[in-house]
């Protein structure tokens, strides 16, 4: 790991000002940044530690929704009683992520900045070509080991999979990310790789995530996060789905549906086609399974990751049907 200067931000403004400086990065839980610094991917000159800033770790839940400070820890949010009861998919996405230790370190703001696990991205000493690391250098992953790579949202420049769980649930429920003055839908915060895979987030120099806001909805209240993976735990998703549902008064007709996919795309992937296809329909297994296939419309595989195209719609269908059962 290259050496760097270390400072503690004395205030939010100081942190923002520091973040505007070239070579300076904000340090929160460190679970991504320190890891990537050891891999030689992150090479900051200066780290500005924001974990001691006061008041940024609050979790407030009321009728309108949840507001979670950027420094709230994943583990605390997962175990928060009101999050569990009003936003089950958020809690489930969190407790199924990483390990208990990492969840005690990682902040929700830092979690949104989590980088891909693509081994070509993570191995600069071994693979010089990576458009995400070095724009224009090429993509080593294409033609390589791709079992864990994305099938949705890819480009010729990058097929790296977004590995997170929480953001998948956030985009399903129209959460917004607050960057001080500015706020964005989480869905818009994450960028498709296109021809600029180095630019992953719609965040500008000098901006800092201050909080996440999740609006209340009936669908968020009746929601789940289903994660399928090779190991039973401590493992990234092979495919996952955050799903929320609201029924009409008859308890069978779908009024509102939210579906987002994880483990299969270059960013947290809202599957609006599935939502639209099922809204107004009566919840029937066959209808749900057929509609769920729309989740992977346009998917492109790279051989070893083909199974994700088969798997993801099944995960979506199961999650929807499971929520239906609890009526």
């Amino acid at each position: 790991m290259r050496d760097f200067s270390y400072f503690r931000a004395s205030s939010l403004d100081a942190a923002r000002q520091a973040a505007a400086l070239p070579g300076t990065m904000l340090l929160a839980g460190g679970t991504t940044l320190i890891d990537l610094a050891k891999c030689g991917v992150a090479e900051p000159d200066t780290l500005v530690d924001i974990t001691h800033l006061k008041g940024l770790d609050r979790i407030d839940v009321n009728e309108r929704g949840a507001t979670i400070g950027a420094l709230a820890k994943m583990g605390h949010i997962a175990d928060h009683a009101d999050i569990k009861s009003r936003f089950p998919a958020i809690s489930e996405a969190l407790w199924q992520a990483a390990s208990a230790q990492i969840r005690n370190m990682a902040t929700i703001g830092g979690n949104l900045m989590q980088r891909t696990r693509c081994p070509y991205f993570r191995g600069p000493a071994n693979f010089s070509a990576c458009n995400k690391r070095e724009p224009g250098s090429g993509c080593s992953a294409i033609g390589g080991v791709t079992r864990g790579h994305a099938v949705l949202g890819t480009s010729e420049a990058c097929i790296a999979m977004y590995p997170g769980d929480l953001a998948t649930a956030l985009v399903a429920f129209d959460a917004t990310v607050h960057l001080g003055e500015r706020k964005l839908l989480v869905d818009d915060f994450f960028l498709l790789p296109g021809s600029t895979p180095d630019r992953e987030h719609a965040i500008e120099p000098g901006e800092m995530i201050t909080s996440i806001e999740i609006p209340s909805s009936a669908a968020a209240h009746r929601s789940t996060y289903l994660k399928i993976r090779d190991r039973q735990s401590y493992e990234f998703a092979a495919a996952s789905a955050a799903v929320g549902i609201e029924f009409e008064a008859d308890g069978r007709t779908i009024r509102d549906l939210r579906v987002a996919l994880g483990g299969v795309a270059t960013k947290p992937w809202r599957a609006r086609a599935v939502e639209e296809a099922l809204k107004g329909k009566v919840l029937e297994p066959e209808t749900v399974r057929a509609a769920s296939r729309l989740a992977v419309e346009g998917a492109v595989d790279h051989g070893a990751n083909h199974y994700k195209i088969e798997l993801a719609p099944r995960v979506v269908a199961r999650a929807i049907l499971k929520l239906g059962e609890t009526a």
Binding site: G30, I34, D49, M105
Partner: peptide, 19 residues
Amino acid sequence: CTVHVDGERVLACLTLAAQ
């Protein structure tokens, strides 16, 4: 490398001492 910081389990390998 699990240790407790302020009573919570964390990984010492991804924590800077200065933090």
